[in-house]
Structure formats: C-alpha cells, structure tokens
C-alpha cells in the first residue's frame, strides 16, 4: 500500500497513484498529497491501475478531496480502474461527481 504523486512535465496535470489498498490507512497521506496542489488549476488524475482494494473510507476521502479542491482544479478524473473497483464507484454513483474513464 503506497501512494505516489507527481506533476507532469508541463505542470498541468497532477497524478496521484495508489497501489494495493486504498482505505483509511491512507487518510493522512492522501490529504497531504492533494494539499500540494496550488491554484495553477491543473487537472487531477487519481490513477487506480494498481489499486486492488478499496472500501467506503476511500470513497469518503475522494469526496473530501473534491470538496476541498472545489474550483481550484479544472477536473478530477479517476482513471484506469480495474473492473471491480469501477463497479464500486458506479454503485456509489461516483460517476455523477467524478470523471471516471
């Protein structure tokens, strides 16, 4: 379970990548990751390609991020979900609030 973050070369894209387990153990790490985003309005991608597990506390964290960032980012995309993770997001109607590819 780890969290990686980085800006793209042009600084317009901020990616948070979560490996393994996305649950309450990441509460602090996740919050401090998105607090780095300034007002340069980058696009944010939450890359879940290596996320095997996710529970409702992860959903809570994503919602908090959205509330906290508000209009300071142009869009938040949840990308590269594995099918079961995508299903969890769909059941929770996250597709209405986030851009899920």
């Amino acid at each position: 379970m780890t969290l990686n973050k980085n800006f793209s070369s042009d600084g317009k894209l901020f990616t948070i990548q979560i490996k393994g387990k996305f649950d309450f153990n990441l509460v602090q790490d996740f919050r401090s990751a998105y607090s780095e985003i300034g007002d340069k309005t980058p696009k944010v991608i939450i890359d879940l390609r290596e996320t095997d597990y996710m529970d409702s506390s992860a959903l809570g964290m994503l919602l908090n991020m959205k509330k906290s960032l508000g209009d300071s980012v142009s869009s938040i995309q949840i990308a590269n979900c594995r099918p079961q993770i995508k299903k969890i997001l769909q059941i929770s109607r996250f597709d209405k609030k986030f851009d899920i590819d």
């Binding site: 387990k21 649950d23 309450f24 095997d52 597990y53 996710m54 529970d55 079961q84 993770i85 969890i88």
Partner: peptide
C-alpha cells in the same frame, strides 16, 4: 477473481 469485492465486504464488516 472476487478479491476486490471480498475485501470490500470484509473491510466494511470488520471496521
């Protein structure tokens, strides 16, 4: 194949 779903069920119930 069900590992993500099983995790979710058990994590919710356990927590």
């Amino acid at each position: 194949e069900h590992r993500s779903n099983i995790f979710l069920l058990l994590a919710e119930a356990y927590n």
